[in-house]
Design a binder for these strands. Structure first.
Lengths: 233, 233
DNA sequence: AATAATTGTGACAGTTTCATGACACCGATA
DNA sequence: TATCGGTGTCATGAAACTGTCACAATTATT
């Protein structure tokens, strides 16, 4: 589960900070200061992703990227380039070399992590793209389809994401704020109560089919998606 | 319960506005105009979060951030940096010092509050999340569920917290004041006898299932949650 | 036994929280 | 431009929750 990320960056403070942030976020960081060091560390086990600084002593990062892309075993490792400025020319050169994404300095920890996750998701489309089935509810993220007991539903985008989140996080209470973070996104600022309304819409959409109370209100805490019927004592 | 937030900002109008917004949203604001003032105020009780302006007389905010991150006790206090758009290049320097997030001026109150909550949520999770089992009583804080001998209970928020406290503090007498402190929160003014009523409600909710007297009254002292059948002191 | 102290219990009103329908806004599209 | 689906916010009423009280029941004290 823990992804290995190789950080190639010559400036020690930035490198250490990146490592710190990565490990805070559950990644496993490996450090390299130079292209030579990096090449030495790209052996088995191969890292799952490489964070590559653009300006490096002993050659630009693109050089390393190119050589990696030529090797059968390292060819598929995604690379995120760290560039000092958003320079169009550099980007073009980078894309030639098969760079997967860019993060322009300065960047925030949040941004970095978000990019990394995005790239991993894109390259390894495993879990997030798998169809889910839960108590007769089928959700196919790829086809963007939902059905209950083989009767298909018509959901709006937000309702779809909300249901998707719930289906992958069942039997657990989430506060309105947590739902906003996970379904709407971290930098969206809407009222807590907006969640209520969407819960309502989703409930309405999946109502009437078998199991009544998939979405349960936990007063004072939030909502829970559960297969167990809400029984009271 | 109330989070303490230290606002380090030299411009009075902005500082006061921030304080106002914070207090509107249930936070407890402490103000500081300079780095020196801020350092003087970062003593026990340590603030839960620091809002730090970038441009300050007597040094940049990063300086303060760095010194905080070096101290064992202040190291974990999350910092949100306030930067003006023009300061963007300094992001790297801030990042370097271990900033948790940025809010770029001008910002809306909504955005500020959302960021603060997100950071607090990210920094202070876990710990109280483990499921407990005690003589057939199961309590799962994550799912927010309680059952006795696999029969699920329906508890209100206060009853839930009270039971949670008892399950993590069994076989020991607690006075009404202690229970108020631990379950209601420290600076809440309610009558002692309120505890009695909630004890009653909790007793009622878990009654009839096997062991009769989980909650024992210790006359003159308080209450005790116990697995042993009623014995007296 | 009588009295005092303490706790149990039911009721109640004020408050908080939630469900729900309505509505205005926005971007896409015809 | 007009329409339409999707979305966020608000007002409203219902329901749940909470703290407090009055009084009953129990236990301790004289």
């Amino acid at each position: 589960m823990n992804r290995q990320i190789l950080v190639v960056e010559d400036e020690a403070p930035i490198r250490e900070m990146i490592t710190f942030v990565l490990e805070q976020n559950g990644f496993n960081a490996i450090e390299a200061e130079t292209i030579e060091q990096a090449q030495a560390k790209i052996k088995e086990p191969y890292p799952d992703l490489i964070l590559l600084d653009w300006m490096l002593p002993g050659g630009t990062g693109v050089k390393l990227a190119k050589s990696l892309k030529q090797n059968e075993y390292t060819r598929t490792i995604p690379i995120i380039m760290l560039t000092a400025r958003a320079d169009e020319d550099d980007k073009v050169k980078g894309f030639d070399a098969g760079i997967d994404d860019y993060v322009t300095k300065p960047f925030s920890p949040k941004e970095l992590i978000a990019r990394i996750k995005a790239v991993i998701r894109r390259v390894a489309p495993t879990a997030l793209e798998e169809a889910i089935e839960f108590h007769g509810i089928k959700l196919d993220p790829v086809a963007h389809r939902v059905s209950i007991n083989d009767k298909s539903l018509d959901l709006g985008p937000t309702e779809f994401r909300l249901l998707h989140f719930f289906l992958t996080h069942t039997e657990r209470v989430y506060s309105r704020e947590q739902l906003l973070d996970n379904v709407w996104g971290t930098n969206v600022y809407v009222e807590d109560r907006t969640v209520d309304v969407h819960i309502r819409r989703l409930r309405k959409a999946i109502a009437g089919e078998g199991h009544e109370d998939f979405i349960q209100t936990v007063r004072g805490s939030g909502y829970r998606f559960s297969g167990k019927t809400k029984d009271r004592a």
